[in-house]
Amino acid sequence: MSFLNSRNRSEYAFPLATQSNDIQLKYYEQHGLTLSAPEKTALQKVKLLPVQRPLDSYTDAEREKIGFWQDVVDQ
């Protein structure tokens, strides 16, 4: 959603609930709002899982990097 502010510039509004948990916590801290302990721990516990793609969807250079880092971790 877009609207004009007092300086006639566009501002965009996004529902806070659609933002990541880190952004929500940062917003509450910046605006001096307090969350109850259960709400805060619930926001901190939820982590998005990384998207897993098949190995053949990566380029040759990316596969080389992946192989390198797998070797480093294995060592």
Results as ranks from 00 to 15, higher is better:
30 Q>S: 13
8 N>Q: 11
4 L>D: 10
27 Y>N: 05
73 V>S: 03
35 L>M: 13
19 Q>M: 11
21 N>Y: 00
38 P>N: 14
75 Q>M: 05
69 W>F: 14
16 L>S: 08
30 Q>F: 05
41 T>R: 15
47 K>Q: 09
13 A>S: 07
18 T>I: 05
69 W>K: 02
65 K>G: 03
26 K>Y: 07
40 K>I: 00
22 D>L: 08
57 S>W: 08
67 G>R: 12
11 E>A: 10
9 R>G: 08
43 L>S: 02
26 K>L: 13
20 S>V: 04
74 D>R: 13
37 A>E: 13
21 N>R: 12
25 L>A: 01
68 F>W: 01
71 D>N: 10
63 R>D: 07
29 E>G: 01
43 L>P: 00
55 L>D: 06
40 K>G: 00
30 Q>D: 15
68 F>K: 07
28 Y>S: 00
17 A>Y: 07
35 L>P: 00
56 D>R: 12
51 V>Y: 03
4 L>W: 07
56 D>Q: 14
39 E>G: 01
59 T>V: 10
37 A>P: 00
51 V>M: 01
13 A>R: 03
20 S>E: 05
74 D>Y: 09
55 L>R: 13
24 Q>H: 00
49 L>T: 12
19 Q>V: 03
75 Q>D: 04
55 L>C: 00
59 T>K: 13
38 P>L: 14
15 P>K: 07
60 D>F: 13
14 F>G: 00
10 S>Y: 06
74 D>L: 08
11 E>W: 02
20 S>P: 06
34 T>V: 10
61 A>V: 10
2 S>C: 07
53 R>L: 15
29 E>M: 07
2 S>H: 11
15 P>H: 04
61 A>D: 13
11 E>N: 05
18 T>K: 06
11 E>P: 01
73 V>G: 00
38 P>K: 15
55 L>K: 10
38 P>A: 15
17 A>S: 13
75 Q>F: 06
20 S>I: 02
29 E>A: 14
1 M>G: 06
56 D>S: 14
12 Y>R: 03
74 D>Q: 11
16 L>N: 07
72 V>Q: 08
52 Q>R: 08
47 K>H: 04
49 L>C: 03
